[in-house]
Design a protein around this nucleic acid. Structure first.
Lengths: 341, 341
DNA sequence: AAGATTTATGACAGCGCTACCATAAAACGC
DNA sequence: GCGTTTTATGGTAGCGCTGTCATAAATCTT
């Protein structure tokens, strides 16, 4: 009675042992061929490969992970998937991981550090090779896990702070500051700001602060701001601008936390017959394609989301061990002049 | 010398055995508490839970999967992440999986069945509980794996065909057909169509065919079409429309394969001073928020992407075993009249 | 009260793979 | 030509968990 357990694999899924037997080698040699590891004679490799093809062998990664105490999974924790920014980051990660043995496992935190912590712990159960998350701010428990774990860690988007291992991103504070300087230089003086409800989006807050300090340096300050109660969207931007202008018709420029909302702002202007740029400047953030395809391209800041994801994943693959010094990679940003401010 | 292997877990990560010892129960009992499975006395559960908290125990899912020949992973294979459609689907899946033990592992196929097959096989190595993919068309090898595997399968987006297990989506052929009928009824006669380069996007092709057959029924046919050589984008739509109109200034409506391109079309009209709807109708597909936030909301078809993802994942969770009959769930679509056609 | 059932727990083997150590043969050095 | 290194392969012992079967105690029948 060789096989006692019957809850197991379908009609005898072949195992490494089957492959080894058919190829006339030991299990460990077959294993080495599969993993492309260690010295193997060409003839042996060929025999094993043939056996694999013949049996339709699929390795069992759970067994492999258990035996080697490590997996080929990379945990990716993103705040949101509604915000186009994060699919872009994910795309970058995925691009870097193509052709490698690594696979991303994704979780969505909804910008909530507690959810992040919960998902992180559940991901750790897979002994991932690396963990990628957004931002440098995590719960103490999460941070402890990140610091003591046997895996690489990349914190994306933001570089204003102390990373656990690697940080890849840009300074959002500086982006906000440069936005302010840029607009002041172009003659704008009466600034409005349209927020949205995500209070835990640290990056948006950092940009806001940067903008304020640029204004302050120039002896200015925000004339008005409005916080739209719902999540960010084009409609949110459109409505927010309407409200802002109703209360403060004398604004000459309005800064939005992202391009989606800024486009909403432009749509409001189109609807209300306000001459964008001459009468009212509109400034966004992200540099989405759609904004640049408009008849008057959106003035905004290009954040390099794909590059951030790709760079982070590549960097993580460089070494399995965490190096002594932390790495901070600034992918920077570009101001897109556009035609709306 | 108890611990011979030193490549293993960091300074003694606690195992279930440690938890069991501390709680004064057997390993299997501790395991049952962790998995919330089988009858456990309240007092015992409490002791085990305390031990877990005290040790900071994190279960090892690789070991669990190996022992039980099954994992809590759900493989998700999407054609693309650039196309907003799929992050929306993914969001739906993720929503359904929150609060369950399942975690999505994602792969991107780039609309290529061969890449899909390759990723599928590498995912199968984790013995996933379910596999989610887009469309009903796969390579023979992929299909064989899907049919013989011990996991549930959901094929999303499309329902025009024979699924392996579950299909959730809508009839794209019908959507194209209804688009044609709707536009004909509104008086449009001279139709143009702007494609993009993705020849393997079966859904877009099905809509195209549906549109053509509606025209045919009415004794009409496409006056012109243009295939933009690059991937779909707003700019692609804008350029494609410009080219189309240059050759055929007499078109009275242009249908686009998606909203992104349709918006590009509108931007072209704005730029060229063409009265949208009166002079030229524009029709999209997807029903993206941004199109509806425009001063003249885009006429389009609302595809229920989030719902598709969510429904599929929920359906998959209903039973671990594949039922005898296949399930097809039609999430339908809505025509959004909008103001552009 | 004696059996039948349910509830709570445990012993043990083994899932399929790889780390570790050992060995044998081939290539190299001088 | 005799050590020494390199190349190629194998034996063995687990990795940490859960399926299976067994058992003991509590509860329910009639």
């Amino acid at each position: 009675m060789p096989r006692k357990r019957n809850a197991h694999r379908s009609p005898d899924m072949p195992t490494l042992a089957d492959v080894a037997r058919l190829a006339g080698v030991s299990e460990i040699t077959a294993s080495r061929v599969v993993r492309v590891q260690g010295p193997i004679a060409d003839s042996t490799r060929a025999r094993v490969l043939t056996a694999i093809a013949e049996l339709g062998y699929i390795p069992n990664r759970a067994a492999g992970s258990l035996a080697s105490a490590g997996s080929t999974l990379m945990s990716v924790l993103l705040p949101s998937l509604s915000n186009i920014v994060f699919p872009d980051v994910l795309r970058g990660i995925h691009t870097a991981l193509t052709e490698t043995a690594f696979q991303p496992v994704i979780g969505v935190t909804d910008y909530d550090p507690l959810i992040e912590e919960r998902i992180l712990v559940s991901f750790l159960a897979w002994q991932p090779a690396a963990v990628i998350l957004a931002g440098l701010h995590h719960t103490p428990t999460a941070r402890r896990h990140l610091e003591h774990g046997r895996f690489r860690v990349a914190e994306l988007m933001d570089i204003d702070g102390e990373p656990v291992d690697i940080a890849v991103g840009m300074s959002h504070r500086q982006a906000g500051y440069e936005t302010g300087k840029h607009l002041i230089q172009r003659g704008y003086r009466r600034f409005g700001y349209a927020r949205h409800n995500v209070t835990t989006d640290d990056r948006a807050s950092a940009r806001y602060e940067g903008l304020c300090s640029a204004l302050q340096e120039a002896g200015l300050s925000l004339v008005a701001e409005h916080c739209y109660p719902d999540a960010s969207s084009t409609k949110a931007g459109r409505d927010a601008l309407a409200i802002l202008l109703a209360a403060h018709p004398d604004l000459d420029v309005v800064v939005f936390p992202n391009d989606d909302m800024a486009m909403g702002g432009i749509f409001h202007c189109m609807h209300a017959g306000i001459a964008v740029k001459e009468k009212l400047g509109i400034f966004g953030f992200n540099g989405l394609d759609i904004g640049q395809a408009m008849p008057m391209p959106l003035s905004t800041i290009l954040s390099k989301r794909f590059l951030i994801g790709k760079t982070a994943a590549e960097k993580l693959l460089e070494s399995r061990e965490r190096p002594a010094e932390k790495t901070i990679i600034n992918t920077g940003f570009d101001i897109i002049e556009g035609a709306t401010a």
